[in-house]
Amino acid sequence: MGCFQSKARRQYPGHEDLVLLASQTAFSISEVEALFELFKSISSSVIDDGLINKEEFQLALFKSGKKENLFANRIFALFDVKQKGVIDFGDFVRALNVFHPNAPHEDKVGFSFKLYDLDGTGFIERKEVKQMLIAILCESEMRLSDETVELILNKTFLETDVNQDGKIDKAEWENFVSRNPSLLKIMTLPYLRDITTTFPSFVFNSEVDDIAT
């Protein structure tokens, strides 16, 4: 007993969609198809409607859909560029493109800035960093006194907030990550280089005759 709408939406992307997505990203058509295999498994884990909702996203990250996580919510919001409350396949491919090892460095810097600019004001404010710090402490079950949290914040802002106006702007962030490149490690997924090998089943549904990666 299925609903018509969910059946209609669960189609494979057509050749034109694949060509378009491949042209907009660092992925080949075959790689976009391999990503669809991943998308399909995530988007059908709770409701098989061809879209990833927040619960499905959390389920894929934590193996539990009930676990609320500030950072997973931020990533979800940045993938969901049109703010529809769900991630469609185009959103998924274009967002993962930023995580490709060959993606431009400035795209990774920009995405990480938006990730930490929780309220989207164009600045990473001290209250936002504090909120994230408290979230990571809860997540890791690490207990720190308020005094220690303030010390970490002081040190962080001393290192990043060059003009000492209490907030980190884009230029300060660029400067900071260029001195601390390890902070951008989360912005690169080496798996994306090898996506057709990870999801070889894409060949059974392929729209292209000549599979080239």
Binding site: N69, I75, I136, T148, I152, K155
Partner: peptide
Amino acid sequence: RPATMNAFELISTSQGLNLGILFEK
């Protein structure tokens, strides 16, 4: 030791930011 770390170093260790897990079967 955490007091000597930068907040962003700590934040970047969050499981919620580890998208690599999506590719691990």
